[in-house]
Amino acid sequence: MGRTARRAAAAVALVLAVGACQAAPSDDERPSSVSPSPGLGPYEDVPSAVTDPDDPELPDPLVDTDRLVTGGPPPDGIPALTDPAFEDVADVDWLEDSDPVLGVSVEGEERAYPVRILIWHEIVNDTVADVPVAVTYCPLCDSALAFDRRVGDRILDFGVSGMLYNSDLVMFDRQTHSLWPQIEGRAVAGTLTGTELDRVSVAVVSWDQWRDAHPDGAVLSLDTGHERDYGHNPYVGYDDPDTDPFLLDTDADPRLPAKARVIGIGSEDAALAVPVDHALESGVVETEVDGEPVTVWARPGTTSALDAAVIAEGRETAVTGVFRPRLDGRDLTFAADGDGFTDHQTGSRWNILGHAVDGELAGERLTPVDHLDTFWFAWVGFTPETEILR
């Protein structure tokens, strides 16, 4: 299939995806036709940026609002999950070993959010170890991020606005209808303009890797209250590097191909992009971000959620981890070893989640560094000053 045909096929797939993901609007509407979530706090009596981000009663937006483009579905057309149900690891028989999952750990409580569910809902409003979190996934950027939902004395509940910015999911909070591009993690329009969410670390790994590390963990259930074709990919072929990003209204930085996969670390003028292919060559990349040492790990081990019609049948892609290479005052260095890693100082074995699984340091954990596995166009769109580690 030639480049033009691949682009056409990807465009058709995206049109079908929008139709498949769109839900019928609720009869119970609030201002701007955004339906409320049951049991949540009321919508505050403020102007809605979902309806008009340029409303003169709101703070000046932080972005050119002409670039907040409609991706297809209306607000809540892709339904976020709230008060989700979970299953014990031992009861899960519907995931393949290579299925990608988003692993979240809060104060020792471990949860996995399968991409085969997130690809249809994009946001899960959850509470983990009494911490309100939003676990998010944008298929168009293949970006997974989690946030603390607490802002001052508010606990925010997030929905899918139906807008895109830099081709990235734009969330809205139901309390003030402010707009939050996912990768930025900051309100760019609305009452809460300028407010930043605190990040919660996410590890995107294969189901068997997460399951083996957390046999007593909890897994987001297929019992979502929605009828979706979980396990199937509505964006078939989207990660083909010869296709263009969907509704990206600027030219991607030419230093790398738009859909090259990178590991993004840091922010603003202290941002670094590590091409995944480069990280895979050695398995371990030792570097610094904003003057602090980090160790970047990459191994094959999961499937792309955006390749084949059935997610578990997608092509193999990398799992990554980024950590502080220091433990109890001791600096560590690492080498890839089989499907894991070994530190040079003690010979202990480590898994991709930064857990020592064998040797002198067994049971220890490295401190994770927030990072983002995504396409180059998405990372550089929000961190234009980023350096590239080559």
Rank of each mutant, 00 (worst) to 15 (best):
R3V: 15
L145S: 06
G108F: 03
G41F: 10
M163G: 04
D88K: 14
Y165C: 07
D331P: 08
G2L: 04
V135M: 02
P139K: 01
V357I: 00
E316I: 09
C138F: 07
A9M: 07
D142F: 09
L222S: 07
G381F: 01
V133K: 01
H214T: 05
E107S: 11
R330W: 06
D239M: 04
V310N: 08
T342W: 10
A10C: 06
A308P: 00
D45T: 12
H177A: 07
S348R: 02
G321F: 03
D27V: 13
C21W: 14
R111W: 04
G301W: 08
Y43I: 15
T302I: 00
L280W: 01
E107W: 11
G185H: 03
A5M: 12
D229K: 10
G41L: 06
P181A: 13
Q209S: 14
G185F: 00
S267K: 12
F334C: 14
V101R: 00
G108C: 10
W376D: 00
A13P: 03
V284Q: 05
H278K: 04
R228Y: 15
L280S: 01
D337T: 14
A309Y: 00
T342Y: 13
D28W: 08
A13F: 12
E107Q: 08
Y165P: 13
R199S: 05
L280R: 07
P384N: 14
A309W: 01
D173T: 15
D208Y: 03
H371A: 06
T250M: 06
R186N: 01
G162T: 01
W210Q: 06
V276M: 04
D64S: 14
S267F: 11
P325T: 01
N351S: 01
P181H: 15
V276N: 00
R116N: 00
S26N: 11
L192D: 14
L306S: 03
R6I: 14
D198L: 04
T342R: 11
V380T: 07
N125P: 03
H344R: 13
G321S: 07
F334D: 13
W207Q: 02
E227S: 07
A270F: 15
H278C: 02
R261C: 01
S33E: 11
I311W: 00
V188F: 08
R261N: 03
P132H: 04
P325L: 11
P368T: 06
D99K: 00
D60R: 10
Q22A: 09
D168A: 14
D249N: 00
P74N: 15
V160Y: 07
G190V: 12
A129S: 10
L62R: 15
P56C: 08
A187I: 06
W376V: 05
A13K: 09
L145G: 04
T383V: 03
G217E: 06
